[in-house]
Design a protein around this nucleic acid. Sequence first.
DNA 1: CGTCGTATTGAGAAGGGTCAAAAGTAGTGG
DNA 2: CCACTACTTTTGACCCTTCTCAATACGACG
Lengths: 249, 249
Amino acid sequence: MAADVALLSSQQACDICPIRTRAVCAHCDGDELAELETMKYYRSFEAGQVIVWAGDRMDFVASVVSGMAGLTQQLEDGRTQMVGLLLPSDFLGRPGRDLASYTVTATSDILLCCFRRKPFEKLLRETPHLASRLLEMTLDELDSARDWLLLLGRKSAREKIASLLVILARREAALIRQRPGGRIVIELPLTREAMADYLGLTLETVSRQMGALKREGLIELEGKRRVNIPSFENLVVESGDDTDGGLPV
Amino acid sequence: MAADVALLSSQQACDICPIRTRAVCAHCDGDELAELETMKYYRSFEAGQVIVWAGDRMDFVASVVSGMAGLTQQLEDGRTQMVGLLLPSDFLGRPGRDLASYTVTATSDILLCCFRRKPFEKLLRETPHLASRLLEMTLDELDSARDWLLLLGRKSAREKIASLLVILARREAALIRQRPGGRIVIELPLTREAMADYLGLTLETVSRQMGALKREGLIELEGKRRVNIPSFENLVVESGDDTDGGLPV
DNA sequence: CGTCGTATTGAGAAGGGTCAAAAGTAGTGG
DNA sequence: CCACTACTTTTGACCCTTCTCAATACGACG
């Protein structure tokens, strides 16, 4: 990761960027990219670090280049709900808004491609490529959030855990550009507590359900953070969803 | 309502439209409105009617002119979660998508201002006013969905009910263009079952909690569908949120 | 007045939460 | 290299909120 930062922390050409084809800049042409470069800088955070606090002034927006972060919301008494998971190519920040709505925390080491907000907003107004891609991504995020509503509102603890693993497995498979199926190994860059916050459970329940899935052979744990899924299909059944390829994240 | 339809079902001028300043067309100029008119038609539905089924082909998008509708998602075994509530000025449908992702049901009599999808998409590509307004609305919806995640994941049944009433009261107050506060009367165009589906509860639990709030004097029911809120502030306390003006819908 | 859909109420069960303790794990410094 | 500390995870016992199943009441409408 330190190497990545060194590699990318200067004004780095976009053509070797791993998220070039999926991020907010995906549809930009050469001139537009050049324009973006003038407002661009990289920042990295270590796992556990807070990237932005809810309510703080935010004068950048960003694309996640690598790693993972969580958007988090809280009730006054401290109850916490994660309301979004940012994975590589996902967009962070809201154009046109001064103050951050959510606390953003790195759940793994993470590298961000940041754009100064004001110039980015200007470019957004002037270049349909950028605006249409952002609209598309926002609509996708809205769909994901709605899928998550179904999970939080109606799924059992076991189904919630299975669903999370299925989603991460799908993302993992998508990176290698293949259909998820059969045996898959995924990295789980989340503590039990973070999983609980995402799933609307307590960390004890998460731990118990992970234990249950493990005892029943649906998953195997290598260490605490590496999960081996012997049969992806069986896990999908446990998640309660239909067996097709829905649930974008 | 029948009168509204008669009034508006022909190609009606936009300048008397009640949602003109807040809908997707809010920022459009005269030419753009004229263009929109060529692809526009009105449709009305009665309470309870399904407007679109999930998976159906959908060749229009629409603005809600009056009334209310719910977006609904289901698990295979029939468990149902409402994932969005469409109120006047809200946008229905996803440009660029052929098939509906959610089932849309009218929860009250409703009037839609529909646009044929293909021409609308073309106009969207060509007119930044329209695209930027849609982006803005989509970002707002995403924020609402995320607030709802917090509600579903972390709030108690009582807090959920109170939150729903608070949200409807805020919308009601916004229509009259005043700060919500003190005594408010709201129309509840939702059955107990619809409320349950929205809040991730069973209808029995909804009924019991409504009863509890009533016994404690936090709400008064006139009939089943009209709710009188003696003290808006007290209800906000019950909702678990901070006392300021958050929670957009 | 009967019927159908909606809402309320009750009793009992259960899933998940709470509180508490033990067991891993990972750094840190002697 | 090992002991010490701090954190994360697991496990256990108990309890409470909400769900489930069932009966009853209400209200609109023919």
